[in-house]
Amino acid sequence: MKNRQNVTIKGTKGGLVLHLDDRCSYQELKRELDDKLTANLRTQEERHLITVKVEVGNRYLTGEQREELKELIRKKKNLVVDDIESNVITKEEANRLKEENEVMTVSRIVRSGQVLRVPGDLLLIGDVNPGGTVIAGGNIFIMGILKGIAHAGSFGNDHAVIAASSMKPSQLRIASHINRAPDSNPLTENREMECAYINDNHQIIIDRLQALIQLRPNLTRLVEGGH
């Protein structure tokens, strides 16, 4: 067992992969990594930067440890860490991920002065009245009338969309982009079944709901198993 290597370097199609064993102690791993990289440095005299992927298997690394490893590898002149991959995450992270991917259904009217905030997608059965705000980490789907403010992708997701049965918002926000209702309010205009998204020019565009089928195929969560 003593001779087993904790750090192995592999060259793959995708580039250099550093595999760090998950059964030794962190201290031991760090020491061996340092030794190995220093040894390697002498043999390789290439000048351009090489990006490496780090695989740590079933080892959980804290944010601090991740930084430490990155720093350690970065110090070896021509290596840059592209990504650290671990098979494990904490319960907290798992819960957050789950929440961010969940569609939360809320049945109520968001009235003036009220803020409705969800981590993932929001399905609102009801209206958002003027002065009311809905904020979602993901997409926003409103079955009623949107007359207030809707903010989708609040954690910075540019791909988030806002859809409403009746789109009369005072403001639309997606990630860090803001779109305001025009000052002249064309009430006559048909504002039904519409969606808002960010286009390639980083502008919020309002379009027919059906446009999303082409633009955001990822909205489909159902894995079709049939004909």
Partner: peptide, 9 residues
């Protein structure tokens, strides 16, 4: 608008 706010409260 204010009535809406009050109803919310």
């Amino acid at each position: 608008r204010d009535a809406d706010r009050i109803i919310g409260l």
